[in-house]
Amino acid sequence: MIVLNNLHKSYVTGNNSLHVLKGIDLEIHAGEFVSVMGSSGSGKSTLLNILGILDDYDEGDYFLDGKKIKGLNETRAAITRNQMIGFVFQSFNLISFKNALENVALPLYYQKVSRRKRNVIAMEYLDRFGLKDWADHLPAELSGGQKQRVAIARAMISKPQVILADEPTGALDTATSFEVMQILKEVNDQGITVIIVTHEHDIAAMTSKIIRMKDGIIGETIINGDLKMYREIIRSENTFSYV
């Protein structure tokens, strides 16, 4: 589904060049549930932006569903995002003056689906995420967990192949975080590739593959079965840091 070969990205500000991604090689298969971890500055957000075609890269290759993604103009990028990728953000990013139903329907609006049709579809999705009764509530009238569920429904409505979630539980309490992760797991069970960026180990532990970023490269990749061992490493790291 996603293939990265030797991906490089630098941010140039004035005379300074900041080399953020220093050659990323990565393969994510369709239907995988992946988390990206790493300390701040490790390049995990940049990677997610590139995966989401919100940013371009300098060197290397990025193939999304077999298509090379490079130097798309804004219109092409917008269409690809709309059709292939669903976004879930830490701060939900719902449109404040649109009710839950309209928020969920938004991606279809950009596909020029008629209002009646997209509202019917949006209602189905709200129903699926248990929010049917909240359809005409504005985001301000919803709880954090409800907002994130609306956001996931919005990400799902255009039937994307990949869901990119940037710290989806960052603004939620533990119970709600697990609830949201459960939903993402269900989404993943439908065969959709889910990639989340997180710095919470217990959240990452719920995914089937963890990519640890370190200074612009992939430090290590831990696959499901190895998670137990990974926990040991974390524990020892934590112990070390307390010393």
């Binding site: 804004e74 269409i79 976004f87 449109i95 404040s96 950009y110 255009s158």
Partner: peptide, 16 residues
């Protein structure tokens, strides 16, 4: 700005 950014991420084209 943020709202426009969200709309762009969800597939709003520059023309929109």
């Amino acid at each position: 700005t943020r709202e426009i950014g969200v709309q762009r991420a969800l597939g709003a084209r520059p023309a929109t």
